[in-house]
């Protein structure tokens, strides 16, 4: 890393440093954690308090503040925070009901939890110097595969073998049906992969791009070409930041609406 800095003429390019997981209450030396060599004594333990813990806890706090504390007044004429909570409630409830149907409303708290966790983690991740849990494939994969396993079990539990009707297109020509079934099965198992990589990929890419532009911003201190590069990179950071705010919401929305679609397939497997 140090060599990299010198080769770039004093500019610090660490676009991926923001994604590093480290313990909050001890010094972490990467040399003491090389599992490939059997060195694990310095590794992060599963129960250790890390920046992941901190930023997930902040997401939880935001949700508690807006949805539990904000709704405490139960006012007929809502306060501002109460209004935000009610709008989010209405937004997600309508989505669940529209996509997954009336019996999908039973799973509304689950979908709402997913949506709010992703949304608040994404939004908090846009604060300078923050850590974004949803940029990690470990997190999004647990969300994606966890939900995938949930809806698959739910489908078999509700419909038994009939759940497999999801893969058997009754309105397709008989000869094509087995081929379509194979494709359907493959696409079904690809779902959790795309579901989780889409989220982590979008969030990570945006944050990394912003960091790259940020690294160019101090060029004016080093070289005369910075007179051009610095304003351009600052403008670019601003633009990318605005885009990232949009992406933070849209990715939460996309994840949630796909979750609703998968839930619908589990509840109503007939095509």
């Amino acid at each position: 890393m140090a060599g990299e800095e010198h080769s770039e003429g004093g500019l610090a390019f660490h676009p991926l440093q923001q994604f590093e997981v480290h313990p909050l209450f001890r010094h972490y030396d990467p040399a003491t954690c090389v599992p490939a060599n059997g060195i694990t004594e310095g590794c992060i333990k599963w129960y250790e308090i890390t920046n992941v813990t901190l930023w997930m806890a902040l997401a939880l706090l935001v949700i508690v503040a807006v949805f539990a504390i904000g709704s405490r007044g139960r006012a007929i004429i809502p306060t501002r925070i109460q209004s935000i909570g009610e709008m989010a409630y209405g937004f997600v409830y309508k989505m669940v009901e529209d996509v997954a149907g009336h019996d999908g409303a039973k799973y509304f708290p689950l979908i709402m939890s997913l949506f709010l966790f992703i949304l608040s983690a994404n939004m908090l991740g846009l604060l300078p110097g923050s850590f974004t849990p949803t940029s990690h494939i470990a997190v999004t994969a647990v969300l994606g595969f966890g939900f995938f396993i949930f809806v698959t079990l739910l489908g078999f539990f509700k419909h038994g073998v009939h759940f497999l009707g999801l893969f058997w297109m009754k309105d397709a020509p008989l000869i094509l049906r087995p081929i379509i079934a194979v494709i359907e099965v493959i696409s079904y198992f690809v779902r959790p992969v795309s579901h989780s990589i889409r989220l982590a990929g979008n969030v990570m890419a945006g944050h990394a791009v912003m960091k790259v532009f940020a690294a160019f911003a101090p060029l004016i201190l080093i070289s005369t070409i910075g007179v051009v590069v610095t304003p351009v990179s600052i403008l670019a950071i601003t633009a990318i930041y605005a885009l990232e705010v949009l992406v933070a919401f849209i990715q939460a929305y996309v994840f949630t609406i796909l979750a609703c679609v998968y839930l619908k397939d589990a509840l109503h497997p007939g095509h």
Partner: peptide, 24 residues
């Protein structure tokens, strides 16, 4: 990519599950 540093996975997954359960 820190995302592919598998030594941090148990920690992330553990805290994710804790957070999700609490949010739920």
């Amino acid at each position: 990519m820190p995302q592919l540093d598998f030594s941090t996975f148990p920690n992330q997954i553990f805290w994710l599950l804790v957070t999700l359960v609490l949010i739920y």
